[in-house]
Amino acid sequence: MEAAVKPMSVRRVLAAVLLSLLLAVYSPMALTTSAQSAQDSRQLQQLKQKITKELDRRTAELQATLRKLNSDVRIDNIGLDASLNSLNGRNLSVEVSPDTKKKAKELAQKYITQLGELKQKVNDTDTLEEAQEIAKAVDSQSKLTQTVSVQASMTKAVESLTGAFDRMRSSANQLQGQVTKVKSCADGNSGASYCSAANGADAKESAANAQAQLDNAKTIMTTIGSMLASLVAIVLALVMAVVGVTTSLAGGSLGDASGTQGLGSLTGILSSFTALGSQLDLTGGLTSNASGLLGGVTGIMSMFNL
């Protein structure tokens, strides 16, 4: 039996037409929103990667510097020749104080921790707006993290130079002993075994030559000692200045530092570190010169059976 087909009412037809229209309008809207959302998500991921990469770079730099700072330089300051031990009555012992190193290390460690926390914050971010805020903060404190890295690496550089100076004094002291001994050949000890040089060189002349070079080295070393004493004092002052400024910046946390007054101070501190770097270059150059002179004295003394 075939059921009779009723004609559709006008109301139903209208409802169907409206539904079709709604569907036709909604589909492109839904597609657009979905595409927008996908694009945002892609941008968010890209931004997160970019921020993380920069944070990783800064962290790696600070960690490398901290590793170097954790190794101490040996300073003996013992058994030195009297002429090398004092300068105008002051003890020539120059070393970076443990307190300076401690402050430099603590600051570097603090920023490594904070960079780690910031990285975690980036990972936990799920909106593009929030990620953009963090990106702004990361950019604004690039100078801050650079200053923290610079203060730590400069402290290490000064410490290494004081270590080299200490070794140099020790070598100069040994050489002075040898030169004095060879000098005694001209004072009646000419029969001693050490008075005959391997190539027949005259002991008196060789000793005089060696003493002249050693005296030059000592003069340079006196200058190095003064410069190092000044470097040690300056690096302490600058480390303290960095500690002060970083504490005032955003309460010591890595927030958005743009527009903070302390950033101006960082520029000043970095300029001071630049001046310190120049003084380090000069002192390093003098250290190489003095070391070369001591090498020459070593060469002369090696001809004798000492």
Binding site: R58, D139, A157, S160, L161, G277, T287
Partner: peptide
């Protein structure tokens, strides 16, 4: 002494590199 002088040179170069660091990327 030579080793100490070389180490001092290396650390000084590292310090100056940190000072002239222009590797920071604007994110």
């Amino acid at each position: 002494l030579d080793a100490a002088v070389k180490q001092a040179d290396t650390d000084r170069a590292a310090a100056k590199a940190a000072l002239n660091d222009d590797n920071a990327v604007k994110v």
